[in-house]
Nucleic acid binder design. Structure first.
Ligand SMILES: [Mn+2]
Ligand SMILES: [Mn+2]
Ligand SMILES: [Zn+2]
Ligand SMILES: [Zn+2]
Lengths: 169, 169
DNA sequence: CGTCGACGTGAAAACCATGTTCATTTAGCA
DNA sequence: TGCTAAATGAACATGGTTTTCACGTCGACG
């Protein structure tokens, strides 16, 4: 099941991050790229194991931290404070509305909030303003299902094969 | 040094929370009420020890959780995910802008964001919408001091004696 | 192609905030 | 004053994340 690592380092160099291209990082990035919703480091570690790649949990944590620093993933914290990651398609700052039930997420247009936050700087005298904005709710699908079971929709898992843009190099 | 618990249960019953009035809870509430900025459970535990009260760390955690449920404190999470608490003066939903340097906070008027968030429900089909909005920056004071030391302003600690409104009963 | 040093890896252990257990104490009410 | 449900806290458990450190490997340079 050890997937052919044939593609070597072809076309690898989109956003130079200063990170070496290792088997583990390629695997993390590949699996993460197929993940349609936010997942935790541990879930990702399990997915990697399923997919045949052997990557230590330590490395998964480290890699996700690097990807965060490099701006290649979006990070949110669930209610328990656990960090969840999603491969970021664009390099824009984004916010998400996440279903507390099934975990499905959708980006929201928070331009209004961004402008409001920007205005806060002058208004308060604070500099280097940062903000976190996390939105959650119960999606329409889950609301229906909720009548029956107490909300345990199977979260989606992996999607089809992705491109070769991996962000390393 | 064991402060005279003279005031007994005088004037205790502002917002009925269903919580019993114990020595420990009174102490937590009293010290927390004198805390001008967000603090962690552990910091509060230390402050309690300093002030002569003996309250178990477990009880501090439990009490803060109850106070949160009862709406008597505001809670934020710092960058490490640690929960920080602040005695809430009013019972309104609030957001804060906190200095990453000294920890000083100020409530901000986020009405615009509240309205925007409310509109999201119809727009997305999600129900039971919740949001967290946390703002941080570097306050004017710290910005000045930053030129010298690498930002380690002494965070303020306890303030003077507070009133007798403790929220128990 | 080889060499080599900086960077990356991972098993084990440490960390650390927070929760749970359970025997003991206590608040509040009749 | 007694009674009982609630509260307390020391010890222990939990779980996500980081640190350690011995070993592997990426990739630049010759
Ligand atoms: Mn934003
Ligand atoms: Mn709000
Ligand atoms: Zn859902
Ligand atoms: Zn400051």
């Amino acid at each position: 099941m050890a997937e052919a690592e044939a593609e070597s380092t072809a076309g690898v160099q989109p956003r130079a991050t200063g990170l070496r291209s290792t088997r583990q990082r390629r695997a993390v990035l590949e699996v993460l790229g197929r993940c349609p919703e936010f997942i935790s480091a541990q879930e990702l570690h399990a997915l990697l194991a399923d997919s045949g790649s052997t990557v230590g949990l330590t490395t998964v944590y480290r890699t996700l931290r690097e990807l965060d620093r490099a701006g290649l993933v979006d990070v949110v914290r669930d209610e328990g404070g656990e960090r969840l990651y999603l491969r970021r398609p664009t390099d824009e700052h984004r916010h998400y509305l996440i279903c507390r039930c099934c975990g499905r997420s959708r980006p929201v247009d928070a331009e209004a909030v961004e402008r409001w936050a920007a205005g806060l700087a002058e208004l308060t005298g604070f500099a280097e303003l940062e903000h976190t904005l996390e939105l959650s709710g119960v999606c329409a699908d889950c609301r229906q299902a909720e009548a029956t079971a107490p909300c345990r929709q199977a979260p989606p898992l992996l999607a089809a094969e992705s491109g070769t843009q991996d962000g390393l190099g």
